[in-house]
Design a protein around this nucleic acid. Structure first.
Lengths: 343, 343
DNA sequence: GTGAAAGCGCTAACAA
DNA sequence: TTGTTAGCGCTTTCAC
């Protein structure tokens, strides 16, 4: 492997000092036109590219952002990432992606790596920040790192935390969905999916129950059925419900994937959706519009979420003032799974 | 901002030299047990973490891999990435993700950035490496960089290239799908979607035609309908076909998303699938199993693809011998969109 | 076992 | 305008 070309090599051949080369590279000070040209010619000739490691080492900034998320194969996260990237590219940032499967150890590990790599900031999604009761220890770890590196939490929170957050108003979304079903005349509504110790689930359930009560309707605990966040959960829970004597007329699923599972089993059992049973999802991922019938759901505004996260982070990095919490309003998306097309 | 803690700080407080600290950090040489303990205590006390930039600068290795892909919101790519990550994490690598939308300029830019950041290797997917006639210039750019940084192309190629590649046998997949349809008795088959200048499309079309011919069947050019790779393409093309007097009895779609679009329009028009029309996709993404009816498709073995890419890259990085091309065999996945459940 | 010192490639005072 | 030089934080000979 031959010696990589450096500013010294360029400087030497151009018969100038390294600082002059650095100046034309960064435009930090005026350089005589003739020497600038000479240097540029050499840079092109050798396809010289400055070593970002060395640069970052002295400048104490890397222009790298770390993104921690639980599952890149869940369509929701790529969409947020896409929003992040769009917004941050123009600001010159690049990304480290860390997939954690939501496991605390992997999150800790990612945090460590990102710190070692000296990223300028971290965007944290999923895992511990969605636990309805996250341990002090896990929370403190994040808090400690945040003292050294700006962190923004996306769609989550930490106990007693003072960290900056960008969140969607999930309760509001759940309320809209529930009200929509009630307005259509549904009185018997069940809830499907999600772990009961994860805030994404509990917030929805809470808003769901509250909205039902506000409309003078009861929610039987028999009809709040937890599971995980997969398609299988939806399938199993629907199969379970179909065996019962008394069935709900509508199902509120924790997310789109679970809703798809529910739809599939219901359709196979010969039910018509929404006539025999209305089903709603949450997230408005691509799945919601590929199923038949298309799902009524709530958009999490994934792009917005990503964009805002970057903006907050960017301000944090530059020591600008930002409000602690940025709340994004969800949007109700009404489709065929609650309203038959023919209407 | 207070001064970040360094090896010097640790060394000073432990009353040893920095080299000793470095030794315990890396285990590169024996250190007396008592001094090691003293140092470790300090490291824990201050939560010291070595600066990876400085380390990489001297070691000339970053343990970072750059991943270039066209569209992270297309479910296929997160799956490959997942495979990449699983395999590479254990080897200690971390990832830079670059989304290019398939635009050559963004690819060039990503390549530049990755070089500046001194990544140890690059995994390249999508964009120019899928063009059926990529310009010399674009190809050369990649080739030039490959002289300095190991690169592996995933599911693509470059003209006259000698780069290492990991690919799925797409032609074989298309052949299996076509043969499957023929075996079911279909004689009138159309092809939907994809740009005609992208190899992912042309390879399939080629294999499709060849298999048809081998079975003594004709393919009318009227029935090879290009588009893009979206759901909309499938919708439009199906709408187009349904207007015609003579209709095919089966449709081969360039990928799952397009197939979903086709299914939706067909179902809305009152057709039964597969009885009135069989439809197949390609990729076996999550979409294939969420649609009703579930899609017969070909698995691209995205995980395998990712894993193998990393393995090849890793060997390249370590100057080990690897064969130029790794071919992964696709798998035919038969589901309801060609075979009715009742059978 | 341990320390001194050079060097990785770049930027940024400070001087000239 | 331009050059000199001192770091940035770490690893790694080479001595001892």
């Amino acid at each position: 492997m031959k010696h990589n070309i450096t500013v010294y090599d360029i400087a030497k051949e151009a018969e100038v000092s390294v600082s002059t080369v650095s100046r034309v590279l960064n435009g930090t000070a005026p350089v005589k036109e003739s020497t600038r040209e000479k240097i540029m010619a050499l840079i092109n000739k050798y396809q010289f590219q400055p070593n970002a490691l060395a640069r970052s080492l002295t400048k104490k900034e890397t222009k790298m952002i770390g993104v921690i998320l639980p599952d890149i194969t869940n369509p929701f996260f790529p969409e947020v990432f896409w929003g992040v990237e769009n917004e941050a590219n123009s600001k010159g940032y690049t990304f480290f992606l860390c997939n954690t499967s939501g496991q605390p150890e992997l999150e800790s590990q990612s945090l460590t790596i990102l710190r070692e790599k000296q990223v300028d900031g971290i965007i944290f999604m999923g895992g511990r920040i969605n636990l309805s009761n996250c341990s002090q220890e896990l929370a403190k770890e994040v808090e400690d790192i945040a003292k050294k590196i700006p962190i923004v939490l996306v769609n989550g929170n930490l106990p007693d935390s003072s960290l900056h957050r960008v969140i969607i108003n999930e309760g509001k979304g759940a309320e809209m969905l529930t009200q929509h079903l009630i307005d259509l005349g549904h009185k018997e509504i069940a809830f499907f999916g999600g772990y009961d110790y994860v805030s994404t689930t509990t917030q929805k359930v809470k808003a769901f129950k509250k909205t039902m009560k506000a409309n003078g309707l009861k929610v039987s605990n028999d009809w709040v059925l937890y599971g995980d966040f997969s398609m299988d959960a939806g399938k199993k829970l629907m199969a379970d419900i179909l065996k019962r004597e008394k069935r709900p007329t509508a199902i509120f699923c924790v997310n789109d994937v679970t809703a798809v599972g529910a739809v599939k089993v219901a359709v196979e059992a010969g039910l018509k959706i929404p006539e025999d049973m209305a089903i709603v999802g949450f997230d408005d991922t691509i799945l919601a519009s590929t199923v038949i019938p298309e799902l009524t759901t709530v958009s999490q505004k994934s792009l917005e979420l990503g964009k805002n996260a970057v903006n907050v982070l960017h301000k944090l990095i530059n020591n600008e003032k930002v409000k602690k919490v940025t709340v994004i309003e969800p949007e109700l998306i009404i489709r065929d799974s609650t309203l038959p097309k023919s209407r």
